[in-house]
């Protein structure tokens, strides 16, 4: 197992998030405080509606907290505007989703290339990096296929390739094996573990105790609060 670094990557303190409708206010995160160190692999678990995905979205700067503090790599980002968040996100964070979320109109190669386009990487460099990562994910032979032509496992490999192509410091994975059979699921978890061993910090939301065992630490949430933290040995 790779040694976890001493540097703190994420520190959230008293984080709050509410969802309001006209009649009901639901508390998704209730003064939640968590720290994640660089190089850590953290699993977040809990029953449906406990705030796992909300937490992941805020960590990924896809959503705003309603209160509290979020320090990412030493910078307070809780109140960053959309442009700053987008900028920070595209250079630092990769996402892996349960339903893969590949763009149907783009080929495997083009899907993986997309983040590089938005970070302004020149074309030749893009080709090199996409090919490298496709090779690593063992999906090179499918480079010109469209997502619908791939199996679930292959689609998730492409999604992971897309998440890592920009060499992010952090990967946020939202139930990455939720739509896969156990064999494909294990492969995906191996891939994430490899990435973590190469230095990428990973935070993964999961319902699966099996998957959670790949992490260093499990944070269990209930009603928007941490109820227990398990350190995996």
């Amino acid at each position: 197992m790779k040694r976890i670094g001493e540097t703190q990557m994420i520190k959230i303190t008293d984080l709050e998030k509410y969802y309001r409708t006209e009649e009901v206010e639901t508390i998704a995160l209730n003064k939640l405080s968590i720290e994640v160190k660089t190089g850590e692999f953290v699993a977040i678990m809990g029953p449906s509606g406990c705030g796992k995905s909300t937490l992941l979205n805020i960590l990924g700067m896809l959503d705003d907290p309603d209160g509290g503090s979020y320090v990412f790599n030493g910078v307070e980002v809780a109140h960053f505007n959309e442009r700053k968040r987008a900028d920070l996100r595209k250079h630092n964070i990769g996402f892996v989703f349960q339903s893969f979320n590949l763009i149907d109109e783009l080929t495997v190669f083009e899907n993986v290339e997309l983040p590089l386009i938005y970070t302004g990487i020149p074309s030749a460099e893009r080709v090199k990096r996409v090919e490298e990562v496709l090779d690593k994910m063992q999906i090179m032979h499918r480079r010109n296929h469209y997502p619908q032509q791939l199996s679930g496992g292959q689609q998730q490999r492409v999604a992971i390739a897309r998440a890592v192509v920009n060499k992010p410091k952090l990967i946020l994975a939202d139930e990455p094996t939720g739509n896969l059979d156990s064999s494909n699921g294990n492969e995906v978890m191996e891939l994430l573990t490899d990435l973590n061993e190469q230095g990428t910090t990973i935070i993964m939301v999961t319902h699966s105790e099996h998957d959670a065992r790949y992490s260093h630490r499990i944070i269990r949430l209930l009603d928007g609060q941490t109820v227990v933290e398990n350190i995996m040995i």
Partner: peptide, 16 residues
């Protein structure tokens, strides 16, 4: 919506 979201998540700015 899925395509647009993914483009945003992987780094597309609004103007792009």
């Amino acid at each position: 919506s899925k395509e647009i979201s993914m483009r945003k998540i992987v780094g597309a700015a609004k103007w792009q």
